[in-house]
Design a protein around this nucleic acid. Structure first.
Length: 344
RNA sequence: CCGCUCUUAGCUCAGUCUGGCAGAGCAGUCGACUGUAGAUCGACUUGCCCCCCGUUCAAAUCGGGGAGAGCGGACCA
């Protein structure tokens, strides 16, 4: 693969790259590295799956991948995770991520996992943090984290420190590329702005799109019906997609189409398989799609009915989730210790 | 350390002054309409009124104590 091909592989199905020139430049280096961070808060879901699937593309493009399980962040963001559950949730996140990477056709052994506290409590990280705290206005930090950190009428300091720490994570993990959902954009733009002041390189940023929820609008952690969980069985996946917002012929805000595009098709492509749609004879019989574009074209022209799209997408998603689900449920303590309120 | 305000349905909040069946909007559930969902229409559900003690025939409401949250003041030789 030449550099341009590697760049194309890394940036397919993404929302934005900052900047393309810098990415090409990084890929020319000896051992380019990328990192993505997840704060181990609530249970992981299908939205995480789409961003994690891309890690397989990174590895194929010859980029070293580090996954940060940002346990301190999980607590700093409005105490989403109680302090004494951070280790249990870190363990759960790592296992869930490994399982998803495997489904994506990559070897999780090739990914380096790091827990936030392993380096975020040491120097020079902490010294840099204090310098940055002195150097950053409240409004700047607020703006940077406004799409990531939970907003409230009485925000805590933790949410502001969060954004500065995430900026420093890039430098501390020595990552050339910061990868994450487009919601992370504000924080990484702050990182690009500030890190050079502290003697670090500014990171190249690759942003994944955020998928629409199944109920229309954004996917919401607090709305169980808006997303497929990694522990959902086939029947539950079918029910959730069956209830999904999916207007005939409309692409906008259509979570079902987006799941097909950003998760199902990339996975099928990896396995060299096509998208199968089972359809009753009276509606025209079965269909097969080799790529997303032709599926979308049929949907827009209303040759593919939402009900048939839902059935087919649900089955493909259930297939993708099944191995992850099995692994997570195989260890009966894993979820129970990470989420004692949900699993007792 | 002192003072003030707030705490009621999953969420946002009325109701407290002047004690009398626990409320609204949104959300949710179920039907109708659609070969999906949504929208629309129809119906339905939702409670430790923060906790304890007291007054009263009767307390979300009044009194006392406590908890949690928020705001302000003071202290700064």
């Amino acid at each position: 693969m030449d550099t341009a091909e590697r760049r194309d592989l890394m940036t397919r199905y993404t929302e934005e790259v900052v900047t393309d020139e810098e990415l090409l430049d990084v890929l020319e280096r000896d051992s380019p590295s990328a990192y993505i961070g997840y704060a181990p808060t609530g249970e992981m879901h299908i939205g995480h799956f789409t961003t994690i699937r891309k890690l397989a593309d990174f590895l194929r493009a010859g980029v070293e991948v580090t996954v940060l399980v940002a346990d301190l962040h999980a607590h700093l963001d409005d105490e989403k995770s109680p302090f004494d559950l951070l280790d249990a949730r870190t363990d759960y996140y790592q296992q869930a991520i490994e399982a998803m990477v495997e489904v994506a056709g990559a070897d999780p052994e090739n990914i380096e996992f790091v827990q936030g506290r392993e380096f975020e409590l040491d120097q020079p990280y902490t010294l840099d943090l204090y310098r940055m705290l002195a150097d950053t206005t409240i409004s700047r930090a607020t703006r940077a984290g406004s799409e990531v950190v939970r907003q409230s009428d009485n925000p805590k300091l933790g949410g502001l420190v969060y954004t500065l720490m995430q900026s420093l994570d890039v430098a501390a993990l020595d990552a050339d590329i910061a990868y994450g959902g487009i919601d992370q954009r504000g924080i990484y733009m702050l990182a690009r702005e500030m890190l050079p002041d502290y003697g670090y390189d500014k990171p190249v940023c690759v942003f994944a799109p955020l998928l629409s929820g199944l109920t229309g609008g954004k996917m919401s952690a607090s709305d169980a019906a808006s997303k497929v969980n990694l522990t959902d069985d086939r029947e539950t996946v079918r029910e959730k997609l069956g209830q999904a917002y999916c207007p005939m012929g409309e692409v906008e805000d259509n979570g079902v189409l987006e799941y097909a595009r950003y998760l199902v098709f990339p996975l099928l492509e990896e396995q060299d398989e096509a998208f199968q749609v089972e359809r009753p004879e009276k509606f025209g019989g079965d269909l097969v799609y080799e790529d997303y574009e032709s599926l979308e074209a049929d949907f827009v022209s209303e040759d593919l009915h939402p009900q048939d799209l839902k059935n087919a997408t649900a089955d493909h998603i259930a297939d993708a989730v099944a191995p992850v689900r099995e692994r997570l449920l195989a260890d009966s303590d894993l979820l129970a210790t990470a989420y004692p309120d949900q699993y007792d």
